[in-house]
Design a binder for these strands. Structure first.
Lengths: 199, 199
DNA sequence: GAGTTACGCTACGACTCGTAGCGAAAGAGC
DNA sequence: GCTCTTTCGCTACGAGTCGTAGCGTAACTC
Protein backbone atom coordinates (compact mmCIF):
# COMPACT_ATOMS: atom_id res chain seq x y z
CA UNK A 1 0.00 0.00 0.00
CA UNK A 2 2.39 2.65 -1.25
CA UNK A 3 0.69 5.95 -0.73
CA UNK A 4 0.22 8.06 -3.78
CA UNK A 5 0.68 11.78 -4.01
CA UNK A 6 3.33 14.02 -2.53
CA UNK A 7 4.86 12.42 0.57
CA UNK A 8 5.10 14.28 3.84
CA UNK A 9 8.45 15.89 4.36
CA UNK A 10 10.33 13.91 7.01
CA UNK A 11 12.67 16.86 7.22
CA UNK A 12 9.80 19.14 8.21
CA UNK A 13 8.81 16.74 10.99
CA UNK A 14 12.21 16.91 12.61
CA UNK A 15 12.51 20.65 12.07
CA UNK A 16 9.18 21.15 13.83
CA UNK A 17 10.08 18.97 16.79
CA UNK A 18 13.45 20.65 17.17
CA UNK A 19 11.82 24.08 16.88
CA UNK A 20 9.32 23.06 19.55
CA UNK A 21 12.06 22.09 21.96
CA UNK A 22 13.94 25.29 21.31
CA UNK A 23 10.81 27.38 21.77
CA UNK A 24 10.17 25.66 25.09
CA UNK A 25 13.60 26.67 26.28
CA UNK A 26 13.15 30.28 25.21
CA UNK A 27 9.51 30.90 26.03
CA UNK A 28 8.41 28.21 28.47
CA UNK A 29 5.19 26.27 28.19
CA UNK A 30 2.82 29.17 28.59
CA UNK A 31 4.67 31.36 26.15
CA UNK A 32 4.96 28.78 23.42
CA UNK A 33 2.70 29.43 20.45
CA UNK A 34 2.03 27.43 17.35
CA UNK A 35 2.77 30.42 15.15
CA UNK A 36 6.14 30.83 16.74
CA UNK A 37 7.05 27.17 16.32
CA UNK A 38 6.00 27.31 12.69
CA UNK A 39 8.15 30.36 12.07
CA UNK A 40 11.18 28.79 13.76
CA UNK A 41 10.81 25.61 11.75
CA UNK A 42 10.42 27.55 8.50
CA UNK A 43 7.05 25.93 7.97
CA UNK A 44 3.48 27.12 7.53
CA UNK A 45 1.25 26.99 10.57
CA UNK A 46 -1.20 24.80 8.71
CA UNK A 47 1.48 22.18 8.30
CA UNK A 48 1.66 21.82 12.07
CA UNK A 49 -2.05 21.23 12.35
CA UNK A 50 -1.96 18.63 9.58
CA UNK A 51 0.26 16.48 11.83
CA UNK A 52 -0.66 17.33 15.40
CA UNK A 53 -4.17 18.08 16.57
CA UNK A 54 -3.08 20.55 19.22
CA UNK A 55 -0.25 21.96 21.24
CA UNK A 56 -0.21 19.20 23.85
CA UNK A 57 0.38 16.36 21.43
CA UNK A 58 3.07 18.28 19.63
CA UNK A 59 4.96 18.92 22.84
CA UNK A 60 4.61 15.33 24.01
CA UNK A 61 6.20 14.07 20.82
CA UNK A 62 8.90 16.72 20.93
CA UNK A 63 9.86 15.79 24.47
CA UNK A 64 9.39 12.05 24.07
CA UNK A 65 12.18 11.95 21.53
CA UNK A 66 14.57 13.01 24.29
CA UNK A 67 13.77 9.88 26.27
CA UNK A 68 15.07 7.68 23.47
CA UNK A 69 18.56 8.09 24.85
CA UNK A 70 17.80 6.33 28.14
CA UNK A 71 19.78 3.10 28.40
CA UNK A 72 20.77 0.67 31.12
CA UNK A 73 24.34 -0.46 30.64
CA UNK A 74 25.18 -3.32 32.97
CA UNK A 75 27.55 -1.80 35.51
CA UNK A 76 28.20 -4.97 37.43
CA UNK A 77 26.14 -4.39 40.57
CA UNK A 78 22.63 -3.37 41.49
CA UNK A 79 23.96 -0.36 43.36
CA UNK A 80 25.95 0.86 40.37
CA UNK A 81 23.00 0.26 38.05
CA UNK A 82 20.72 2.36 40.23
CA UNK A 83 23.24 5.17 40.48
CA UNK A 84 23.74 5.08 36.73
CA UNK A 85 20.03 5.30 35.97
CA UNK A 86 19.51 8.08 38.51
CA UNK A 87 22.34 10.14 37.07
CA UNK A 88 21.20 9.54 33.53
CA UNK A 89 17.61 10.45 34.28
CA UNK A 90 18.74 13.47 36.28
CA UNK A 91 20.86 14.80 33.46
CA UNK A 92 17.98 14.37 31.04
CA UNK A 93 15.58 16.14 33.36
CA UNK A 94 17.89 19.05 33.99
CA UNK A 95 17.83 20.07 30.36
CA UNK A 96 15.62 23.12 30.09
CA UNK A 97 13.32 21.78 27.43
CA UNK A 98 12.63 18.59 29.38
CA UNK A 99 12.23 20.37 32.66
CA UNK A 100 9.63 22.78 31.38
CA UNK A 101 7.66 20.45 29.21
CA UNK A 102 7.37 17.23 31.17
CA UNK A 103 5.37 18.58 34.09
CA UNK A 104 3.20 20.68 31.85
CA UNK A 105 2.05 17.80 29.69
CA UNK A 106 1.54 15.61 32.74
CA UNK A 107 -0.63 18.33 34.26
CA UNK A 108 -2.60 18.68 31.06
CA UNK A 109 -3.07 14.92 30.87
CA UNK A 110 -4.99 14.75 34.14
CA UNK A 111 -8.12 15.70 32.24
CA UNK A 112 -7.31 14.12 28.89
CA UNK A 113 -7.26 10.35 28.63
CA UNK A 114 -5.85 10.26 25.11
CA UNK A 115 -2.97 12.46 26.10
CA UNK A 116 -2.33 10.28 29.14
CA UNK A 117 -1.99 7.20 26.95
CA UNK A 118 0.37 8.98 24.63
CA UNK A 119 2.57 9.98 27.55
CA UNK A 120 2.50 6.48 28.95
CA UNK A 121 3.67 4.92 25.71
CA UNK A 122 6.18 7.56 24.77
CA UNK A 123 7.75 8.34 28.12
CA UNK A 124 6.67 6.31 31.13
CA UNK A 125 6.99 2.82 29.70
CA UNK A 126 10.39 3.67 28.35
CA UNK A 127 11.58 4.40 31.86
CA UNK A 128 9.89 1.43 33.45
CA UNK A 129 11.78 -0.93 31.22
CA UNK A 130 14.97 0.26 32.89
CA UNK A 131 13.65 -0.86 36.26
CA UNK A 132 12.61 -4.23 34.91
CA UNK A 133 15.96 -4.76 33.23
CA UNK A 134 17.87 -3.70 36.34
CA UNK A 135 15.87 -6.13 38.45
CA UNK A 136 16.58 -8.99 36.08
CA UNK A 137 20.28 -8.25 36.03
CA UNK A 138 20.32 -8.22 39.84
CA UNK A 139 18.53 -11.57 39.94
CA UNK A 140 21.01 -13.05 37.49
CA UNK A 141 23.83 -11.88 39.74
CA UNK A 142 22.12 -13.29 42.82
CA UNK A 143 21.69 -9.87 44.44
CA UNK A 144 17.93 -10.32 44.49
CA UNK A 145 15.99 -13.54 44.95
CA UNK A 146 14.33 -14.94 41.81
CA UNK A 147 10.60 -14.62 41.30
CA UNK A 148 8.85 -16.86 43.77
CA UNK A 149 5.65 -17.15 41.80
CA UNK A 150 4.16 -14.00 43.28
CA UNK A 151 3.38 -11.23 40.85
CA UNK A 152 6.33 -8.83 40.87
CA UNK A 153 4.32 -6.04 39.22
CA UNK A 154 3.56 -4.20 42.45
CA UNK A 155 7.18 -4.24 43.52
CA UNK A 156 8.40 -3.02 40.14
CA UNK A 157 5.85 -0.24 40.14
CA UNK A 158 6.91 0.83 43.61
CA UNK A 159 10.59 0.99 42.74
CA UNK A 160 9.75 2.84 39.58
CA UNK A 161 7.66 5.44 41.37
CA UNK A 162 10.32 5.90 44.03
CA UNK A 163 13.27 6.36 41.69
CA UNK A 164 11.57 8.40 38.99
CA UNK A 165 9.54 10.34 41.52
CA UNK A 166 12.52 11.22 43.66
CA UNK A 167 14.55 12.45 40.69
CA UNK A 168 11.66 14.45 39.28
CA UNK A 169 10.90 15.96 42.67
CA UNK A 170 14.53 16.80 43.36
CA UNK A 171 15.01 18.58 40.05
CA UNK A 172 11.65 20.21 39.43
CA UNK A 173 10.22 20.92 42.85
CA UNK A 174 13.23 21.23 45.13
CA UNK A 175 15.14 22.80 42.27
CA UNK A 176 18.47 21.18 43.04
CA UNK A 177 20.73 19.18 40.81
CA UNK A 178 21.25 15.43 40.68
CA UNK A 179 24.94 14.85 41.28
CA UNK A 180 26.98 11.79 42.11
CA UNK A 181 26.69 12.21 45.86
CA UNK A 182 22.93 12.47 45.76
CA UNK A 183 22.63 9.51 43.41
CA UNK A 184 24.78 7.46 45.78
CA UNK A 185 22.66 8.47 48.76
CA UNK A 186 19.45 7.56 46.97
CA UNK A 187 20.85 4.21 45.89
CA UNK A 188 21.94 3.51 49.46
CA UNK A 189 18.49 4.35 50.76
CA UNK A 190 16.78 2.11 48.25
CA UNK A 191 19.12 -0.79 48.96
CA UNK A 192 19.40 -0.57 52.72
CA UNK A 193 16.65 1.72 53.93
CA UNK A 194 16.98 4.33 56.63
CA UNK A 195 18.80 1.88 58.85
CA UNK A 196 21.44 1.43 56.18
CA UNK A 197 22.10 5.10 55.59
CA UNK A 198 21.95 6.22 59.18
CA UNK A 199 23.77 3.41 60.91
CA UNK B 1 -1.16 52.32 60.06
CA UNK B 2 -4.84 51.66 59.62
CA UNK B 3 -5.58 51.98 55.96
CA UNK B 4 -8.23 54.46 55.04
CA UNK B 5 -10.84 54.01 52.34
CA UNK B 6 -13.03 51.05 51.54
CA UNK B 7 -11.43 47.82 52.74
CA UNK B 8 -11.00 44.87 50.44
CA UNK B 9 -13.72 42.31 50.76
CA UNK B 10 -12.30 39.26 52.55
CA UNK B 11 -15.37 37.42 51.39
CA UNK B 12 -14.49 38.10 47.76
CA UNK B 13 -11.01 36.68 48.32
CA UNK B 14 -12.33 33.36 49.48
CA UNK B 15 -15.03 33.26 46.84
CA UNK B 16 -12.38 33.78 44.16
CA UNK B 17 -10.07 31.08 45.50
CA UNK B 18 -12.93 28.62 45.80
CA UNK B 19 -14.14 29.49 42.31
CA UNK B 20 -10.62 28.95 41.01
CA UNK B 21 -10.46 25.47 42.51
CA UNK B 22 -13.85 24.58 41.12
CA UNK B 23 -12.95 25.89 37.68
CA UNK B 24 -9.80 23.77 37.74
CA UNK B 25 -11.90 20.68 38.37
CA UNK B 26 -14.32 21.47 35.57
CA UNK B 27 -12.02 22.90 32.93
CA UNK B 28 -8.48 21.88 33.78
CA UNK B 29 -5.50 24.15 33.71
CA UNK B 30 -5.56 24.98 30.03
CA UNK B 31 -9.28 25.65 30.00
CA UNK B 32 -9.34 27.90 33.01
CA UNK B 33 -9.89 31.55 32.18
CA UNK B 34 -9.91 34.62 34.35
CA UNK B 35 -13.29 35.67 33.01
CA UNK B 36 -14.77 32.35 33.98
CA UNK B 37 -13.36 32.49 37.50
CA UNK B 38 -14.70 36.00 37.92
CA UNK B 39 -18.15 34.95 36.79
CA UNK B 40 -18.17 31.94 39.13
CA UNK B 41 -17.11 34.06 42.07
CA UNK B 42 -19.71 36.72 41.29
CA UNK B 43 -16.97 39.29 40.95
CA UNK B 44 -15.74 41.61 38.25
CA UNK B 45 -12.70 40.53 36.29
CA UNK B 46 -10.89 43.68 37.30
CA UNK B 47 -11.18 42.66 40.92
CA UNK B 48 -9.12 39.57 40.18
CA UNK B 49 -6.35 41.59 38.62
CA UNK B 50 -6.30 43.99 41.56
CA UNK B 51 -5.22 41.09 43.80
CA UNK B 52 -3.29 38.68 41.59
CA UNK B 53 -0.99 39.76 38.81
CA UNK B 54 -1.73 36.77 36.62
CA UNK B 55 -3.22 33.33 36.36
CA UNK B 56 -0.25 31.49 37.85
CA UNK B 57 -0.19 33.34 41.13
CA UNK B 58 -3.92 33.00 41.55
CA UNK B 59 -3.79 29.26 41.06
CA UNK B 60 -0.81 28.86 43.40
CA UNK B 61 -2.70 30.58 46.18
CA UNK B 62 -5.88 28.67 45.46
CA UNK B 63 -4.06 25.35 45.65
CA UNK B 64 -1.77 26.29 48.51
CA UNK B 65 -4.76 26.67 50.80
CA UNK B 66 -5.40 22.95 50.38
CA UNK B 67 -2.02 22.13 51.89
CA UNK B 68 -2.98 23.79 55.15
CA UNK B 69 -4.66 20.59 56.22
CA UNK B 70 -1.44 18.56 56.26
CA UNK B 71 -0.61 17.48 59.79
CA UNK B 72 1.64 14.93 61.48
CA UNK B 73 -0.15 13.29 64.36
CA UNK B 74 2.26 11.20 66.42
CA UNK B 75 1.21 7.63 65.66
CA UNK B 76 3.69 5.97 67.97
CA UNK B 77 6.27 4.65 65.53
CA UNK B 78 8.29 5.89 62.59
CA UNK B 79 6.67 3.33 60.35
CA UNK B 80 3.18 4.44 61.29
CA UNK B 81 4.12 8.10 60.90
CA UNK B 82 5.42 7.52 57.40
CA UNK B 83 2.34 5.56 56.40
CA UNK B 84 0.13 8.29 57.81
CA UNK B 85 1.87 11.06 55.93
CA UNK B 86 1.89 9.09 52.71
CA UNK B 87 -1.82 8.38 52.94
CA UNK B 88 -2.62 11.95 53.88
CA UNK B 89 -0.57 13.38 51.05
CA UNK B 90 -1.98 10.83 48.64
CA UNK B 91 -5.57 11.71 49.50
CA UNK B 92 -4.80 15.39 49.06
CA UNK B 93 -3.16 14.79 45.72
CA UNK B 94 -5.98 12.65 44.40
CA UNK B 95 -8.43 15.50 44.64
CA UNK B 96 -9.04 16.75 41.10
CA UNK B 97 -8.21 20.36 41.78
CA UNK B 98 -4.88 19.51 43.40
CA UNK B 99 -3.98 16.95 40.79
CA UNK B 100 -4.49 19.30 37.89
CA UNK B 101 -3.02 22.43 39.36
CA UNK B 102 0.08 21.32 41.20
CA UNK B 103 2.02 20.03 38.23
CA UNK B 104 0.95 22.94 36.08
CA UNK B 105 2.26 25.60 38.42
CA UNK B 106 5.44 23.62 39.00
CA UNK B 107 5.95 23.46 35.26
CA UNK B 108 5.31 27.14 34.88
CA UNK B 109 7.72 27.91 37.70
CA UNK B 110 10.69 26.45 35.86
CA UNK B 111 11.05 29.74 34.04
CA UNK B 112 9.75 32.10 36.70
CA UNK B 113 11.84 32.61 39.81
CA UNK B 114 9.18 34.62 41.67
CA UNK B 115 6.63 31.90 41.12
CA UNK B 116 9.11 29.31 42.30
CA UNK B 117 9.60 31.16 45.59
CA UNK B 118 5.88 31.43 46.08
CA UNK B 119 5.45 27.71 45.57
CA UNK B 120 8.30 26.95 47.92
CA UNK B 121 6.81 29.00 50.73
CA UNK B 122 3.22 28.03 50.23
CA UNK B 123 3.54 24.35 49.43
CA UNK B 124 6.97 22.76 49.60
CA UNK B 125 8.09 24.03 52.99
CA UNK B 126 4.81 23.01 54.48
CA UNK B 127 5.48 19.43 53.47
CA UNK B 128 9.10 19.44 54.48
CA UNK B 129 8.16 20.32 58.04
CA UNK B 130 6.37 17.00 58.24
CA UNK B 131 9.59 15.17 57.47
CA UNK B 132 11.53 17.19 60.02
CA UNK B 133 8.90 16.58 62.69
CA UNK B 134 8.72 12.87 61.94
CA UNK B 135 12.48 12.59 62.18
CA UNK B 136 12.52 14.34 65.55
CA UNK B 137 9.77 12.09 66.90
CA UNK B 138 11.71 9.03 65.80
CA UNK B 139 14.84 10.33 67.47
CA UNK B 140 12.92 10.94 70.70
CA UNK B 141 11.68 7.36 70.57
CA UNK B 142 15.17 6.05 69.89
CA UNK B 143 14.25 4.70 66.47
CA UNK B 144 16.84 6.92 64.83
CA UNK B 145 20.19 8.00 66.28
CA UNK B 146 20.40 11.62 67.47
CA UNK B 147 22.22 14.21 65.41
CA UNK B 148 25.93 13.48 65.58
CA UNK B 149 27.04 16.97 64.72
CA UNK B 150 26.85 16.39 60.98
CA UNK B 151 24.44 18.53 59.05
CA UNK B 152 21.22 16.56 58.67
CA UNK B 153 19.93 18.80 55.85
CA UNK B 154 21.00 16.50 53.05
CA UNK B 155 19.35 13.51 54.66
CA UNK B 156 16.12 15.38 55.31
CA UNK B 157 16.04 16.64 51.74
CA UNK B 158 16.57 13.14 50.42
CA UNK B 159 13.77 11.64 52.48
CA UNK B 160 11.53 14.50 51.48
CA UNK B 161 12.22 14.07 47.77
CA UNK B 162 11.71 10.32 48.01
CA UNK B 163 8.40 10.41 49.87
CA UNK B 164 6.82 13.37 48.15
CA UNK B 165 8.24 12.39 44.78
CA UNK B 166 7.00 8.83 45.03
CA UNK B 167 3.48 9.89 45.97
CA UNK B 168 3.33 12.53 43.26
CA UNK B 169 4.67 10.15 40.67
CA UNK B 170 2.31 7.36 41.69
CA UNK B 171 -0.77 9.56 41.48
CA UNK B 172 0.00 11.89 38.62
CA UNK B 173 2.25 9.94 36.29
CA UNK B 174 1.41 6.32 36.92
CA UNK B 175 -2.20 7.32 37.51
CA UNK B 176 -2.87 4.88 40.32
CA UNK B 177 -4.23 5.52 43.77
CA UNK B 178 -2.41 5.66 47.08
CA UNK B 179 -4.03 3.01 49.28
CA UNK B 180 -3.02 1.44 52.56
CA UNK B 181 -1.13 -1.42 50.96
CA UNK B 182 0.98 0.86 48.83
CA UNK B 183 1.67 3.19 51.74
CA UNK B 184 2.81 0.21 53.81
CA UNK B 185 5.07 -1.01 51.01
CA UNK B 186 6.63 2.42 50.59
CA UNK B 187 7.20 2.75 54.33
CA UNK B 188 8.81 -0.69 54.40
CA UNK B 189 11.10 0.22 51.54
CA UNK B 190 12.18 3.46 53.19
CA UNK B 191 12.83 1.76 56.52
CA UNK B 192 14.48 -1.43 55.37
CA UNK B 193 15.44 -0.98 51.74
CA UNK B 194 15.11 -3.58 49.03
CA UNK B 195 16.58 -6.20 51.33
CA UNK B 196 13.85 -5.57 53.86
CA UNK B 197 10.95 -5.82 51.44
CA UNK B 198 12.19 -8.71 49.39
CA UNK B 199 13.63 -10.97 52.03
C1' DG C 1 1.06 13.17 -18.99
C1' DA C 2 -3.13 12.51 -15.17
C1' DG C 3 -4.22 11.96 -10.58
C1' DT C 4 -3.32 12.58 -5.77
C1' DT C 5 -1.46 14.49 -1.83
C1' DA C 6 1.29 17.94 0.78
C1' DC C 7 2.78 22.52 0.86
C1' DG C 8 2.92 27.85 1.72
C1' DC C 9 0.16 31.68 2.04
C1' DT C 10 -3.66 34.63 3.45
C1' DA C 11 -7.69 35.60 5.76
C1' DC C 12 -11.01 34.75 9.16
C1' DG C 13 -14.24 34.28 13.56
C1' DA C 14 -14.04 33.23 18.20
C1' DC C 15 -11.76 33.67 22.15
C1' DT C 16 -8.54 35.25 25.95
C1' DC C 17 -5.48 38.44 28.13
C1' DG C 18 -4.62 42.45 30.78
C1' DT C 19 -5.72 47.48 31.03
C1' DA C 20 -8.31 51.94 31.19
C1' DG C 21 -12.07 54.83 32.39
C1' DC C 22 -16.31 55.63 34.59
C1' DG C 23 -19.79 56.22 38.38
C1' DA C 24 -21.30 54.04 42.63
C1' DA C 25 -20.48 51.81 47.16
C1' DA C 26 -18.17 51.26 51.65
C1' DG C 27 -15.57 52.50 55.11
C1' DA C 28 -12.27 56.25 58.14
C1' DG C 29 -11.70 60.72 60.20
C1' DC C 30 -13.57 65.25 61.40
C1' DG D 1 -23.84 64.74 59.17
C1' DC D 2 -19.82 65.51 55.60
C1' DT D 3 -15.40 64.72 53.07
C1' DC D 4 -11.72 61.85 51.65
C1' DT D 5 -9.95 57.59 50.11
C1' DT D 6 -10.07 53.14 48.30
C1' DT D 7 -12.55 49.38 46.26
C1' DC D 8 -16.23 47.84 43.58
C1' DG D 9 -18.90 46.44 39.13
C1' DC D 10 -19.35 47.53 34.54
C1' DT D 11 -18.09 48.42 29.75
C1' DA D 12 -14.94 48.87 26.21
C1' DC D 13 -10.64 48.24 24.13
C1' DG D 14 -6.01 46.67 21.61
C1' DA D 15 -3.12 42.94 21.20
C1' DG D 16 -2.44 38.35 20.67
C1' DT D 17 -3.70 33.36 20.03
C1' DC D 18 -6.27 29.38 18.40
C1' DG D 19 -7.70 26.37 14.90
C1' DT D 20 -9.92 26.33 10.24
C1' DA D 21 -10.95 27.28 5.30
C1' DG D 22 -9.74 28.37 0.70
C1' DC D 23 -6.52 28.99 -2.85
C1' DG D 24 -2.80 28.07 -6.15
C1' DT D 25 1.50 25.53 -6.44
C1' DA D 26 4.97 21.77 -5.67
C1' DA D 27 6.18 16.88 -5.39
C1' DC D 28 5.53 12.26 -6.21
C1' DT D 29 3.09 7.77 -8.32
C1' DC D 30 1.14 5.23 -12.00
Amino acid sequence: MTRTGRPRSQQADEAILEATRQALVDLGWGGLTMSDVAARAGVAKTTLYRRWANKNELVVDAVAALFDELRLPDRGSLRADIEGVVLQFGRLLERPETKTALMAVVAESTGDEALRCRIREAIVDRQKHLVIAGRRHAQDRGELPPDDGADPTAEIDLIFDVIAGAVVHRVLVSGESVDGAWAAALAALILGGLAGTVA
